[in-house]
Write a protein that binds this DNA or RNA. Structure first.
Lengths: 165, 165
DNA sequence: CTGTGTGCAAACTCTTTGCATAAGT
DNA sequence: ACTTATGCAAAGAGTTTGCACACAG
């Protein structure tokens, strides 16, 4: 209700024009064009943002927490403080480059796959895996209340180890 | 991955026999039988648990956070410390009396409705509302990975105020 | 150059925990 | 009586923020 991301006076200009070109495309793009990706979203191409974007998208779709990303960044030469990582992830989520996941629990998980999809959540390991369900049926069923529109639909299938084998 | 609830040496006896009689029934039951509800789940009927159970179920289905419940409890004569409220809510969730919701964000929300259903989440107000979707189609589509079974399926429809309307 | 992002450390919020006391069966 | 829950206050985890400096455009 009050998650505010600091930086850039991005008041209202493109906050809502959800860029059409998919981020998946970004993943495929040559490294040097992460800069273009950021600029497409109106974000300044700083060293940290470029580095984090590369980490996020270079390996294909991922699910990361802020500190996992921090660890990775630290291990490689991609330098960025934890605070900055939070800021960047929140910023990316806000403009739609990544997606914050609704998984019950403490840590916020960011998903680099922006395409409509759902998730398996493994209760034993904490792992998250994409699944692609046909949501058409569900979507048809849903009637957004007066004055509201559907921002997104999160479907999480929680899995636990089967007892009997 | 490490949420442990303290209290009672409930190691394994009924941890898994998900009592069939619905909690909705509990809601309808006369006040004095919250005691029976607790006992049915093998929980000691303490003053706090009884009071909180009453708060939770007396008004029909609800979505509460720990501190909201604490506030309510404080306002009425139902005395319970915040720590105890957390313990009780976690305990209730563990045995299945209530359900912890996967809503992106910080605070954990507990849902007193145990029946399979989904949720609207109003991004502007933070409100949560039950919706009853036909999940049959979705469920048919899902194949739990080897060795796993579906614990539950959380569907959250996030709503934002419609701009042009 | 000017404005914005970053880093650091401190602040904050939500939740859990250790230990002594109180209460349930 | 014996065991388990409660309360308190303190610790802990995750995330945000204030401010000075660094950097991008």
């Amino acid at each position: 209700m009050s998650k505010r991301v600091r930086g850039e006076g991005r008041t209202n200009s493109f906050m809502n024009d959800h860029v059409e070109s998919s981020f998946a495309a970004a993943a495929l793009a040559p490294k040097h064009s992460y800069r273009a990706l950021l600029e497409r979203y109106g974000l300044r191409a700083t060293r940290q943002r470029l580095g984090l974007a590369r980490l996020l998208f270079a390996k294909g779709n991922r699910h990361v927490t802020a500190d996992a990303l921090a660890a990775e960044a630290g291990a490689l030469k991609t330098q960025a403080s934890l605070a900055t990582i939070y800021n960047v992830l929140n910023l990316f989520a806000e403009v739609g480059i990544v997606r914050a996941l609704a998984i019950e629990g403490n840590k916020t998980v960011f998903d680099t796959n922006s395409k409509d999809h759902s998730h398996f959540y493994f209760e034993d390991t904490g792992n998250i895996e994409d699944i692609f369900l046909d949501r058409a049926g569900i979507i048809d069923e849903i009637m957004a209340p007066q004055g509201y529109e559907i921002a997104k639909i999160d479907i999480v299938v929680r899995l636990r180890p089967k007892k009997g084998g």
